[in-house]
Design a protein around this nucleic acid. Sequence first.
DNA 1: TATGAATGAGGTTTCATTCAT
DNA 2: AATGAATGAAACCTCATTCAT
Lengths: 235, 235, 235, 235
Amino acid sequence: MERIASNKPKRTATEIAEQIKSLVEDPKLVEQRRKQITKAAIAAFIRHGYHPCTIRNIAKQAQVSVGLIYQYVGDKEDLLFLALVEILRAYKEGIPSAVAGVDEPLQRFCTVVRAYCTIHSGSPDATTLAYRETASLSKERRDAIKQLEVETNQLIIDPIRACIAAGIFERHINEDVLCYQIVMFSHTWALKAWNLQPRMTLETYLEDGLRLMLGGVMTAKGAEQYGVLTGNAKP
Amino acid sequence: MERIASNKPKRTATEIAEQIKSLVEDPKLVEQRRKQITKAAIAAFIRHGYHPCTIRNIAKQAQVSVGLIYQYVGDKEDLLFLALVEILRAYKEGIPSAVAGVDEPLQRFCTVVRAYCTIHSGSPDATTLAYRETASLSKERRDAIKQLEVETNQLIIDPIRACIAAGIFERHINEDVLCYQIVMFSHTWALKAWNLQPRMTLETYLEDGLRLMLGGVMTAKGAEQYGVLTGNAKP
Amino acid sequence: MERIASNKPKRTATEIAEQIKSLVEDPKLVEQRRKQITKAAIAAFIRHGYHPCTIRNIAKQAQVSVGLIYQYVGDKEDLLFLALVEILRAYKEGIPSAVAGVDEPLQRFCTVVRAYCTIHSGSPDATTLAYRETASLSKERRDAIKQLEVETNQLIIDPIRACIAAGIFERHINEDVLCYQIVMFSHTWALKAWNLQPRMTLETYLEDGLRLMLGGVMTAKGAEQYGVLTGNAKP
Amino acid sequence: MERIASNKPKRTATEIAEQIKSLVEDPKLVEQRRKQITKAAIAAFIRHGYHPCTIRNIAKQAQVSVGLIYQYVGDKEDLLFLALVEILRAYKEGIPSAVAGVDEPLQRFCTVVRAYCTIHSGSPDATTLAYRETASLSKERRDAIKQLEVETNQLIIDPIRACIAAGIFERHINEDVLCYQIVMFSHTWALKAWNLQPRMTLETYLEDGLRLMLGGVMTAKGAEQYGVLTGNAKP
DNA sequence: TATGAATGAGGTTTCATTCAT
DNA sequence: AATGAATGAAACCTCATTCAT
């Protein structure tokens, strides 16, 4: 869709969002209205999908007029962007608060995985929306969203590195592969709920998956620790 | 969107596809034209996305007139359905031909994983399309597509079971979780190409991932065999 | 065209018209715009015929945009329905106001006939439109339109009965046949204007026709009265 | 639709029909195929209405291919014209054969009325079609159809004149008005079948109508004769 | 600032007509 | 002569966006 490989310095998602133009001056009001509209947009996009969703759908959901939306946002794509940023932001912010105070590397790793997975399982539709509709954004915005994803991934990679450094995980493992393994493991519960949910609980899924992933990466020392944590002799 | 929970016997994807009505009688011609149109539709949907893609885009891609498409298909959604069925059919058929003649369980498992991943990496856009746009189908068709997915998954689950039966994989592993682990592992290379491709080759990705997954599920006996297969002392 | 014999309670034309959904809330505006659009639709349907007439034709005639029409009406058939209802409503309302204050039965009968005929002759194209295009409506709406016709016929049958009761018309005459005789007599002037207008005036047509019809139904007493009314010794 | 008042010599319906161009040479075949296609067109136009009816509908009805129709006819309007001509021709030809051998003026008049009415009641849909769709023709063809109607009317006017000449009908009656009275009386049974048929038989309708019309036009001498004919002392 | 009526470009779909076989 | 697949113009309708109030 975009032919021109622009060399503009890349803007972050936050910068792009801040530069979305609003006809309204009062920043307080802009923030409040945007929040309200974005929330409605997420709900409406989830219900209908981005393209089939109309501005009227969103206005109705937000209990405002169509015109009001265009006071705070330039076009429909802006709404999608704000929606996706909001979804990813929630994911990204959810993890640190879940692992706060958990310092031991393996435990921290497990907590991150559980948190990440739990967060996604809490709003599977939003996860699905992000999957489906990121491609509907312009390149710059798509890239900014990807960058958010990368930053979130970092929250997973850090504990992996800590585990490696602590000798709990094998030294030679590919941290990117493992990270995406975890990411996709979490998304899978959301994306494939129709197949998985009838067959197991989130807890079973999480623990079985965790054991499976850990089994592939732990050192003997790590395995020992994991046994202590879970009460099992062996992962 | 659909309110009525119909109790009609579910039709398979193939049945639905066969019942898409064509104004043209000659079955030979119908098959040939549908193939041509479906191929064009896949390309056009990949380029634009389903909703933004116009029938004229597809007609142009297929080098036929707009009217011709409607001689072979009832509406735009039929085109999406045919496109997705074709994509999944290719995936499903690709695996058996790849593992033909490989009988040893572990080797068969590894071959399946490699085949599955390679197939998806060969047409990452199609994988992405299937991910994004299945939701744009009516419920019956969405379900039929999911069923195709389940059938393909079976091609992965079978070797898993064989490995368990052969004592190569741990008895207690959750085969569904492992299966989806593999599925998502393969899709990830397609979906997250933008992040992964700059950092590793498909081969690295595959072998690192395979080692990671196997490490979590293999018995001591399995590990020994794996060492023999790969020339490594230890996975 | 309609297969299902529904047992829903039949809605009147007015009810159906009121239930045509509009995206605009303000009832005042809806009424005004609908009136404007219906008027334009009548003109456009008369000019082109219902099927060949395009929404753009109507929009142009009404001096509004195409989109505006769809704010006040669901589809093209709604426009036809509103047009026909408006036409028949005008006919139906025209009669009572014409005969107001005329109480003597025979005179009232003659006045009704003259009024009915004059009204139709005033907008022969509209009469023709109603004739041609009622069949283009869905069954329910067609039935509602027929019901309007029946109600209008009643305005003719009532004076007939009064004349019979007053001994002016023969007791044994078939009031339905006479009624339709009058109805068709009136429509004929509109429908067959191309043949009749060059050969006589509406007045001639009316008086000759009236004399003809009265001659067939009047008693001796009636004939006497008619002579007094017209100044002729004999009808 | 047509702005230009052309001064071309008017062609009769038969001439126009004969000049409709056919790609096929053999006149025998042309006649046979046209007959087949016209018959199918009448049925299809009755079922769907002219505009909604597709060429495919007609081809199917005629059990021929779409292409074949265009070998014998220039366009869709030709089909409508041929259909209407055929319908009116049947009406026109039906009357003389019905009155053949009836020479007494009053009896001949009554026979014509009964024949005309019976013919129309036999194919009410065709009557309705002629009413609705004549307007869909080009002006020249519309005029030619009207001319056919005029010629048919002459078959009614002739007996009226004979009755006047014989002193059976009043000398001063308007023969055009009476003629159309009869025409519309006959059409009414077809057009308003939905209202009339549940309430009376064609026989009742005919005799009540005939008595009504005759009552308006007969001289004393005529009334006497009518009494002899019907066995009633008085119309 | 907020509203929602108005606009019109553009998408899907139909179908009269053509033309290669 | 007959077929029916192919064409593409044009219709209906939707909906993102604007603008007067």
